[in-house]
Design a protein around this nucleic acid. Sequence first.
DNA 1: GCCTGTGAACGGCTTCACAGCG
DNA 2: CGCTGTGAAGCCGTTCACAGGC
Lengths: 271, 271
Amino acid sequence: MAAQRGQRNGVGVTPPAPTAAEITTPIPRVTEVPAARERARAIPEAAVARLAVYLRVLSGMQEHGSGTVSSEELAAAAGVNSAKLRKDLSYIGSYGTRGVGYEVAVLIEEIERILGLTRKHSVAVVGIGNLGHALANYGGFPGRGFPVTALFDVDPDLVGVPVGGLPVGHIDDIARVCAEREVSIGVIATPPPAAQAVCDRLVSAGVQCILNFAPVVLQVPDHVEVRKVDLAVELQVLSFHVARRADNAAVLAEANGRAANGRAVDGMVVS
Amino acid sequence: MAAQRGQRNGVGVTPPAPTAAEITTPIPRVTEVPAARERARAIPEAAVARLAVYLRVLSGMQEHGSGTVSSEELAAAAGVNSAKLRKDLSYIGSYGTRGVGYEVAVLIEEIERILGLTRKHSVAVVGIGNLGHALANYGGFPGRGFPVTALFDVDPDLVGVPVGGLPVGHIDDIARVCAEREVSIGVIATPPPAAQAVCDRLVSAGVQCILNFAPVVLQVPDHVEVRKVDLAVELQVLSFHVARRADNAAVLAEANGRAANGRAVDGMVVS
DNA sequence: GCCTGTGAACGGCTTCACAGCG
DNA sequence: CGCTGTGAAGCCGTTCACAGGC
C-alpha cells in the first residue's frame, strides 16, 4: 500500500515555499509536541497498519475461544515474523507474560485504545457511483466503529435516493451536514476531475482525515491526513512483478542451461 | 499502503525452518538471478508504486500538450519532492536532458516498459457482490491494459448473469477459464471466509499475482505476489491519527497555557 | 545558469540476539 | 525452561548536496 503522506513537516525544516500563515503570524504557537515530551507517540506508521491487522486476527481468535497467544502464533496468523510482532506490541506497552504469551482480550483492548477505536468515527462518502454504492452498502463499515452517516453526490437524480438505508445529500450541503453529524472521516469516491474540489470542500467543512479512492494526487493543508487507495497503482505494481518474473525466467533458463553440470546458487521452487 | 509481502527470501539467508523442497532436493536449481548479474532489478517497491503515479500525471500532461517537464514540476504534480523523483527516475535509466528536463513522451514510454504495461494483463474478478460489481463495471480497468476477462461467484443465481458486459462464471470453473483466457491477475472480492479457498484455487489455476480486497491475511507460495487493499486497516490508521491529533491538542492547550509569555518552539497552523 | 544524475549522509524500520522474568 | 521485551546492529529507502552536462 500505499499511503499518500505529505512532506514530513518536521519542526525546523524550511518548507519549499513559506505559507501565508507563517509569514503573517509573528508569534509562533506550539503546534507539535516537543520530542522530549512525546508520550510514546513514536509508533511507526507501518507498525500502526500492522496493529490493525493484529487486531483483526485477535478478534477471530477470541471468537474461536482462545484466551492466550504466543508471539509466534499471532505472528504466523498475521503473516509477519515474531520479532516484528513483539516489537510492534512493545510500542504500545508491555502486556505480555514472559514464558506464557499474551492474553487475547487484553491485547484487543490495548490496540483498540491506541488506534482510537474506543470512540466512534463518523464517515461521509462522496460520490455515489459504483464504488460509492459498494462503500455505502458495507453498512457500518468493517468491525463497527465507523458508521457511515452521510452520502453526497452532484447528480440531482441521486439526491434523496436512499442508498444502504441513507438518503443521498447534495454536495453543496457538505459543510453543513458534516458539521451537524460530526463527520471525522471523508471518503472520496468521485471521478478524478471532481476529487480535488470535493477534497477542498471536505477540508473547509472541518474534515481532517480523508480516504481517497480517486486516482488523483490530492493537495491538502499540513493538518489534514490523506490515505489513498489506488487501483491503477496496485495493478501496475502487480504488472511490474509479472514482467520481472518473465525476465528472470528468461535469464534463468539461460543460466540453468549453461551451468547444467555443477551446483548453481540456491534452491527454491519456482513452478 | 500497505502491501502484503512475505519474507524477503534473500539468497543465502537461512530461513527459520527449512522447507521440504530444500531438504528433499539434492540438486538446487537457480531460481533467482544472482546479485552480480541482476539487470537493474534493484528498483525499490515503493519507487515502483510511485512510478505508476508519475505515469498517470505524465499522461495528463501529455493530453494538455506539454512536451517537456522539469523534475520540479513533475514532483509537485505527483506530490513528492524533486530529489526523490529524480532518484526514482534514475532507477529506470537516464532519460532527462541536463539544464532542460524530461521529454514527457519519452518518460511515459520508459515507465510503461518498466512496469510491463506494453503487454496486456488479463484480470479475473472473484466474488460478484457490491465490490465485485463495482470492479467489473470499471470496464477495462484504469488506463487500459487490464481487461477484465472473467468473473466468478458461487451463487447459482448470479452465474450466467452479465455484469459489466461479461457473464458471471461459476467458481468451480476457475482453473479452466483462467487457463483459457490467460488470466495473469486475480482479484479477490469475496467475503472473508471464502478468500483463502479462492486464493488457493487461483494459485492452482496458475495465477501468480493477486489483488486481495478481503480482510484476510492470505497464505501463498513464495512465487505468488499478493497485494492487498484493506479498508478496515485504512480507516483504523486514520482513526489513529484522529486520536493522536486529539491527544496533541490536549497537551498543546496545556503547553500554550503554561508558556503563554515567551516564544515556544515553532509555528504551523493546526486549526 | 540551470537542471539532471548520483554518491554519500541520514533516518527509520526490521532483524538479531539475548537479558529478564515468570 | 520458555517466551517476552528491547538495546544494538543491519538494512533499505529518503534526503542532501554537488559534480556533470547542456
